[in-house]
Design a protein around this nucleic acid. Structure first.
Length: 433
RNA sequence: GGAGAGGUGGCCGAGGGGUUUAAGGCGCUCGCCUCGAAAGCGAGUAGGCUGAAAAGCCUCGUGGGUUCAAAUCCCACCCUCUCCGCCA
């Protein structure tokens, strides 16, 4: 959420911000917000004076008796009516202002590249060239079928389309990847969590997800105020809701494991094939709460951890600096890592890390107390440590052999119970695609 | 799921319509005392909104209600504890 005090100062900047994000300025009612705010403050001044008078009279009443007392009660009753009327007006103004403020996107960081949509995202780094195969590489879906690793048909039968069972070595790989991630991040000082897979609407909303509506990404639990989380960002971010953290405890570095559920409404298509876009997957998520002056540094730090993970897995990737028009509302800046996916013949997103500055902190009321005593909002950042589904695509496709077998990345060997290679259980499928 | 008890400041804990715009204690900070420390003594110790400031207003789990006045009374919900039931 944007602070009304900040908006008063930076209304023009917010308008430019909205345009840079390729959003419709008309929908955000900036001038209206300022007008409501003006009225609201005017009302509050009058209201506070009336209340002050009422409080004084009420206290007097307690001390007096008889005629004097009745006289005061009469006066107080009149005041009460006036206050009630003004208060209703004030509350509706405040509610309206809050509603509009809640909808505003975060301010961009100046470093965020300007651009209209994903075509304007900037590749800022490339690690290793895509591997050249001496045979036509298969995509992960075919490899998964040959090696009996994923069962989409039965996932569909039992739950619905785009649900799946992971089987056999794919299961070993999920646990191995998670164990690998713990080994990477525990020495970095991360605290590890397994979070709830559900969260209250107010938390979902606070992080910046829309729990309802036609375009919601969130599965809702009927007759409750709960939704299935789309990422542990939600539960890790909500962890400190309404808290004031001691400066000395910052930065708080968290690693959370959870299942992720996404409706992916209207997202079917060319790139949704197989594991790339599914309704449920497991993910390890990095989350950092830090001081405002540290958040840029922390953002780079998360990216460096993500890079290290893919370097150790030995998967070629590139780093994308997401442009203003392609950012979600909470993010002030965002980096994605895209891994090379030979089956698609192109890079595909495998991680994403965002600096949300104080946007989520305001919505969730998460602050910290400086040694000097001042209380301020924290900055909150999140990033993917590993998303199993996408990581599996990258591993299967990059480490495939001509016969359809898969070499397991060496760095995972300590966690795969001696399995170093996955051998096909059935022959290559003719005319598979 | 059923029955009972309870949710008060960083923590413990009193208060059950007006002298509490929250007693007392612990913790923490500062000062006095001391060579130094402990003890003792004194002072200070939540957040938000409005305001240039002085100050005012709001917050006793959350949301409604009653009242001139609510931590205190009423209703709903949430959470915690104890006992019972069920259960991985």
């Amino acid at each position: 959420m944007i602070d009304i005090k900040v908006l008063r100062e930076k209304a023009q900047e917010m308008k430019e911000n909205i345009l840079l994000r390729n959003l419709d300025l008309e929908k955000y009612n900036i001038d209206l917000i300022l007008e409501i705010d003006r009225k609201r403050r005017e009302r509050q001044k009058i209201l506070d004076e009336l209340k002050s008078e009422r409080n004084k009279i009420s206290q007097e009443i307690g001390k007096k008796t008889g005629e004097e007392k009745n006289e005061l009660i009469k006066k107080a009753k009149e005041l009460k009516e006036e206050i009630d009327k003004l208060e209703k007006e004030f509350e509706s103004l405040e509610k309206e202002m809050h509603k509009y403020l809640w909808q505003l996107p975060n301010f961009l960081l100046p470093e965020t590249p300007k651009g209209k949509d994903e075509k304007d995202n900037i590749e800022i780094k490339k690690w290793k060239e895509p591997k050249i195969f001496s045979f036509p590489p298969r995509d992960h879906l075919e490899l998964a079928l040959m090696n009996d690793l994923i069962d989409f048909e039965r996932g569909s039968k039992v739950t619905g389309s785009n649900f799946y069972y992971l089987k056999n070595e794919a299961v070993i790989l999920e646990f191995a990847l998670f164990q690998f991630i713990i080994d990477q991040l525990l020495p970095e000082g991360f605290k590890i969590f397994i979070t709830p897979d559900l969260a209250k609407n107010e938390i979902l909303d606070g992080i910046g997800f829309q729990p309802r509506g036609p375009e919601t990404q969130i599965y809702r639990i009927e007759e409750t105020n709960l939704g299935l989380i789309a990422t542990a960002e939600i539960t890790l971010g909500g962890y400190h809701k309404n808290e004031i953290i001691d400066e000395t405890e910052l930065p708080l570095k968290y690693l959370g494991f959870s299942h992720c559920f996404r409706t992916e409404a209207g997202a079917y298509g060319r790139y949704s094939r197989g594991l790339y876009r599914v309704h449920q997957f497991s993910k390890a998520e990095i989350f950092i709460f830090c001081k405002p002056e540290d958040s840029k540094k922390m953002h780079e730090y998360i990216l460096s951890l993500e890079e290290k993970i893919f370097q150790k897995l030995d998967i070629p990737y590139r780093v994308i600096d997401i442009c203003s028009g392609d950012l979600g509302a909470p993010a002030a800046r965002k980096f994605d890592i895209e891994a090379w996916m030979p089956g698609r013949g192109e890079y595909g997103e495998v991680t994403s890390c965002s600096n949300c500055t104080d946007y989520q902190a305001r919505r969730l009321n998460i602050r910290f107390r400086r040694l000097t005593g001042e209380v301020e909002y924290v900055h909150m950042l999140n990033g993917t440590a590993i998303a199993i589904s996408r990581a599996l695509i990258a591993i299967l496709e990059n480490f495939q052999q001509e016969d359809g077998s898969i070499i397991i990345p060496e760095v995972l060997h300590p966690y795969t119970l001696g399995i170093k290679e996955i051998k096909p259980k059935r022959k290559a499928l003719k005319n598979f695609t």
